[in-house]
Design a protein around this nucleic acid. Structure first.
Length: 454
RNA sequence: GGCGAGUUGGCGGAGUGGUGACGCAGCGGAUUGCAAAUCCGUGUACACGAGUUCGAUUCUCGUACUCGCCUCCA
């Protein structure tokens, strides 16, 4: 039995799918105007892990996972204006980057990845429906959601409309009946992307996208809706208002899940502060995607996670060890129950990793491999970073063996030590035992440093 | 100002109403010519103050501190 913490009820609950043969999960995807930064990647890894667990539990063919691409947005427009490139050109390129970068982190592609611009008709239909039902109104080329018409507005994030207005950080616009009313449709001018609608030529607001796409793909009700905690308000609150006002209070997602935010070296990362970096930059710096994934999984998704270089180094060492241990090993038929149980307990990935350590310690390498793969780790396709070049060191091995043998007689080990330190300096691992000397290339092996060794 | 989260050993990080996982580092030992690797062993850590309880790190309240959201952001 999978248990998940449901933001909507603020409790950990048994997960009961609406239809076990079609478990449906929707996760808010990126606005495609730039490379994904490492904060963007956290929900991707979190919900990818949940997706894997659901597939493991209900069968790979019985889980649908949708993650949208927001390809109509003012940030994209701004980028187009700035670069002189077409919007489609920018969004296509960015989507390509996104899939590459997230793929490098071992994220499976969702079963559907809808682009907002392909669902404009559904959005217009949904807005029309909201207006008919008295939950929205048209004004000056806009369509706006009337928050007073939906009494549960604020339930997800635990805010009341009055509190929010008191907070006073809302955009006051003359065409709004209530300051908290949010845009469903807004007018487009000039070179802004736009479509004809009953409210005039324009484009959709951000929130209506997810409501309309989730409905089009999954129907009025589905199982899980995920995203970052920062989306809880206003984005998810508005999605709920739109969808439930349109389709009924028991509609939309049964379970809402939110991952906590990510920091870098103890500091908040944000675009406005400019202290963020992209997944691609991290990969280019030599952090393997698998290592990044491991770091993410080592903290529970509901807690803030700090990205630090130290953690990445530790993760790398652990993975290198496990890769060496499981190299060439056929994974066992199923993941270990300790690992599955940890994941089933509200996606306790840190506990699952502890389970992997246990398997490694007890020597169950087949189980380790199978269990790690459930977490998207130790996958055959992701291991190139840990591969050590197969270098022929037999000549040097012989050389140092002979030197050592004579040193054993003479008790003068200076020559052996000289060779050994030179080898270590070159990144060669040196193992001496009764059986002899074994040399192997380590992760920092540098052949050029062996040149002068004789 | 409104809303919310967190505070566990040197570091990271799970978990639990009844002798506090796991990883890294450290220390001791085995092994080694010395090392490395490996193996074995090793730490009286649950912010503070009250309350509930036979018993609280775990529940409740308060205090302090940290952090997040409320504004494009995952």
């Amino acid at each position: 039995m999978i248990k998940l913490y449901n933001t909507k009820t603020r409790r950990k609950e048994d997960f009961v799918p609406i239809d076990e043969t079609d478990v449906r999960m929707y996760v808010c995807g990126p606005t495609v105007y730039d490379r994904a930064h490492i904060g963007n990647a956290r929900p991707v890894v979190v919900f990818d892990t949940l997706y894997r667990l659901l597939r493991h539990t209900y069968g790979a063919d019985h889980v649908s996972y949708a993650r949208n691409f927001t390809d109509v947005d003012d940030k994209i427009n701004a980028k187009a204006a700035e670069t002189g490139r077409s919007i489609r050109d920018i969004t296509d390129e960015t989507i390509g980057w996104y899939l590459d970068d997230m793929g490098a982190l071992g994220a499976l592609e969702p079963t559907v990845a809808p682009r907002a611009t392909e669902y404009i008709a559904e959005m217009i239909a949904m807005i029309s429906e909201l207006i008919e039902k008295g939950h929205a109104y048209a004004a000056e080329g806009h369509a706006l959601f009337d928050v007073n018409s939906y009494e549960k507005y604020g339930a997800l994030s635990g805010r009341s409309v009055d509190d929010m207005i008191a907070g006073a950080r809302v955009e006051i616009a003359p065409y709004k009946q209530n300051p908290m009313d949010f845009v469903l449709w807004k007018p487009s001018t000039g070179d802004q992307p736009g479509w004809d609608s009953p409210w005039g030529y324009g484009r959709p607001g951000w929130h209506i996208e997810c409501s309309a796409m989730a409905r089009a793909l999954f129907g009025d009700r589905f199982d899980i809706h995920g995203g970052g905690l920062d989306l809880q308000f206003p984005h998810h609150e508005n999605e709920i208002a739109q969808s439930c006002a349109c389709c009924g209070d028991d509609s939309f997602a049964n379970v809402w899940m939110h991952n906590e935010m990510l920091q870098v070296e103890g500091k908040k990362m944000s675009k406005s502060l400019g202290n963020f970096f992209s997944v691609r930059e991290l990969l280019d710096q030599g952090y393997a995607g698998e290592v990044i994934r491991f770091v993410y999984l080592s903290t529970h998704y509901s807690k803030p996670m700090d990205w630090t270089d130290k953690k990445a180094k530790e993760a790398e060492a652990t993975l290198r060890k496990w890769r060496a241990l499981t190299d060439g090993i056929e994974p066992s038929a199923s993941a270990a129950s300790t690992v599955v149980d940890a994941l089933a307990d509200d996606l306790n990935t840190a506990g699952a990793i502890a389970g992997l350590h246990e398997l490694a310690k007890t020597g169950d390498v087949a189980g380790l491999k199978a269990s790690a793969q459930l977490l998207g780790l130790l996958d055959e396709t992701m291991g190139d970073w840990a591969k050590i070049d197969d270098v022929d060191l037999s000549t040097l091995e012989t050389l140092i063996s002979i030197a050592r043998s004579s040193a054993m007689e003479s008790k003068d080990f200076s020559e052996v030590d000289r060779l050994k330190s030179a080898l270590l300096e070159a990144g060669v691992e040196v193992q001496m035992s009764k059986e002899g000397v074994v040399l192997s290339a380590g992760p920092n092996f540098d052949p050029s440093k062996l040149e002068g060794l004789k």
